[in-house]
Design a binder for these strands. Sequence first.
DNA 1: TAATAAATGTTGCTTTATGTTGTTTTTTGA
DNA 2: TCAAAAAACAACATAAAGCAACATTTATTA
Lengths: 256, 256
Amino acid sequence: MKPQPNHRQQEILTALHKAGGSARIHTIAQTLDVSEETVRRNIKHLTTIGAVEKLHGGARIVGNAEETSFQQRLSENPEAKIRIAHKVAEMIPNGSSLFLDIGSTTAYIADALRDHQNLLVVTNSIAVAYKLATRNNNRVFMAGGELRSHDGGAFGMDAMNFADNFQTDFAVLSAAGINAANGFMLFDLEEAKFSRLIMSKSATRIIAADARKFNRVAPVTIGNPDLVDYLVCDALPPKDITQACESWTTEITLAN
Amino acid sequence: MKPQPNHRQQEILTALHKAGGSARIHTIAQTLDVSEETVRRNIKHLTTIGAVEKLHGGARIVGNAEETSFQQRLSENPEAKIRIAHKVAEMIPNGSSLFLDIGSTTAYIADALRDHQNLLVVTNSIAVAYKLATRNNNRVFMAGGELRSHDGGAFGMDAMNFADNFQTDFAVLSAAGINAANGFMLFDLEEAKFSRLIMSKSATRIIAADARKFNRVAPVTIGNPDLVDYLVCDALPPKDITQACESWTTEITLAN
DNA sequence: TAATAAATGTTGCTTTATGTTGTTTTTTGA
DNA sequence: TCAAAAAACAACATAAAGCAACATTTATTA
């Protein structure tokens, strides 16, 4: 049997696309009004050319970034991060300029910004850039360099010099830990340096963090917590952090 | 000479367009109230022009690369691009260093390289970088700058200077048009400049292009075709291009 | 209007795709 | 862990699509 390009395969691809990247054999068969065997046979062909990936009971498009949501589902505490992301997106008007740093929460924020228009986004995160470039007349500036293999971020002097070119309305950051004594903390010095820089180059600073970050320990401080204008989180922090935020004039915004 | 005959082909094109880019012969025949043979014959003509692609049971519009968006271009002729992508991936061993430029075909090549290990990838395409960073111990170097909104590519002096830092085993490029007289062509001068640069900085040069590119017109030449070592495509080019490739010592590799 | 060229329709035949049936494998739920 | 259910697979018969040669219609030109 020599497989050939076939219109049925085209139909299956579009069906998968409409279904958001993956669907069940049964569903596809019903949609196209053919037998499930036909769907399986054609999916088999699409598999051999690498267009789709076969799952038991269904299939999924390979590539085209639809799987990002799948990767994200694996991350921790996604519901909270999604709520936070939408809250942050509400705070950012169309046409704004903003820094978006790297982090699992900021990746969700990029998703939440997908319907915004005319944004000017400066980022060192490949995921953020990928999600917002080629959309809605946004202008996206990506810091170049070697991308860290664990998170796809660009760091170092080149990234700093790149970011130094900009002055934006918002800086949107994540934090790995928050406590009353030290403020906002990260695990990585490079990240912290970048965070400090973009805070100094923006009018409004927003830190997004889910409740698990409260009183979690991280080694590097992001810098003077007085600079942070908003802390967006999914639950009220413990009393000591709430009081500290008051002293920093940091407004706590609850995502619901 | 023949004012009416074209009309049928025009009707078929509009029918395809209304159907979302692809349709079955049977459906088109019913829509236009003609025999299926007539539809096949006209589609055959449209195929030789390069306007549509024939599938068993149907046909699909081949859009003009200049006018369609990057996302749309990704979905054009995906089987051919995927086949080509896998062929190119076969040519690249684990641990190689390579330039990957921007283009819908190279986006598929990035997908096809998803199981490769320890690659060093230099690119100016956000899609390529996103797909290969954070995978299999790859090192990915992304050229920074403003990302073009229609394809997510970084261009200009900064991208050029960035690429200039590297010397790689492979350069993998796309072409928008190929003809015997001018060699490999692109629509955009910036792209062509970048292509020339990375060709000059790599040991083996591979151009990936599907059959629709043969004898398609594009304004800017990529440079001296003698430099190109491999042309990977999904069908044999017309005789004149085949001969030209011989004179350029460019090996034609067929993806099947 | 007749002659010619082009396009379309028709028919018989070959190739390819699909549906069906029965069997094996994988998942699910207790 | 097992049994029932769902899904996948294999093999065959049938249906659909493609192809080529010829007949017919439609358009073009002298």
